[in-house]
Computed example of a mutant assay.
Amino acid sequence: MRKVRLTKEFRFEMAHALWNYDGLCKHFHGHSYILRVTVLGEPIADNNSPKDGMVLDFGVLKQIVHEEVVDRMDHTVVLNKNADIKGFLEIPQMGERVILTDYQPTCENMIIEMAERISARLPKEVELHSLRLNETANSFAEWHASDQ
């Protein structure tokens, strides 16, 4: 077997608040997120291919993750759609980059959505192996395909 794991790291800034939470995170606050994406596959063995020796071109992985996660979530406020945010979305400029989710926007729930979005875009011969989403320097969630 010739399987290899590739990992690429991404960084973005995002704010959120946890609706109906019983701690400080019920208030608007932001994080400098670090997302590590690991894919698994066999390197292409074709001397005629410009991708010879690659599991996946890092540039392709970057494009997928930027389109599905980073460009979408960077400098946004993410809130549960059930939160009482009357008037917030109408504040000029401040309500332009708001994502309303069907779930509580915890690190755990966000990483599940990220896994779904990234997996759907990968070539069929490459699988999403794992994600690690750091919310702070010492707090993170992990998603592993083998756990699903």
Rank of each mutant, 00 (worst) to 15 (best):
V4D: 00
M73T: 11
D22V: 01
I85H: 12
M54Y: 08
A141H: 13
E113D: 06
V55E: 02
I64F: 09
R132E: 13
I118K: 09
H27Q: 15
L18N: 04
W143E: 07
E108A: 14
R72A: 11
E9W: 00
N134A: 12
Q148M: 07
H66T: 02
N48Q: 09
R2Q: 03
K81Y: 10
R117Q: 06
L133R: 01
V78I: 14
A17P: 13
L122K: 00
C25K: 10
D22N: 06
E42N: 07
I111F: 01
L35G: 02
G59C: 11
K62F: 03
M94Y: 14
A17K: 13
I34A: 12
V78W: 05
Y33S: 11
C25W: 07
V78Y: 08
L18F: 09
A83W: 05
E116K: 06
A120H: 03
V39F: 08
V65A: 07
E68H: 07
A141D: 15
R97Y: 06
I99C: 08
M1W: 04
Q93G: 00
S146R: 08
D147Y: 10
Y33D: 11
K81H: 14
Q104L: 13
I85G: 12
K26M: 12
I64V: 07
A137H: 14
P50Q: 10
E125R: 06
L24Q: 12
C107W: 06
Q63G: 12
E113Y: 00
F58I: 11
M54Q: 10
I112C: 03
E113I: 01
E68C: 11
M14F: 01
T136V: 08
D57W: 02
L133H: 05
V55K: 03
P50V: 12
Q93A: 07
L61W: 08
N138Q: 11
A137L: 15
E116Q: 02
E67H: 05
F12S: 04
R11S: 03
M14E: 06
M14H: 05
V37E: 00
N82G: 13
Q93T: 06
R117V: 00
P43A: 10
V70R: 04
E113V: 05
F88R: 14
N82K: 15
E127Q: 01
G53M: 13
I64W: 03
V126F: 03
D74C: 04
Q63S: 15
E116A: 01
Q93M: 03
L131R: 09
Y33P: 12
G23T: 04
L18Y: 07
A141K: 14
I34F: 07
N82A: 13
I91M: 11
V60K: 15
N109R: 00
A83V: 05
N20G: 02
P43K: 08
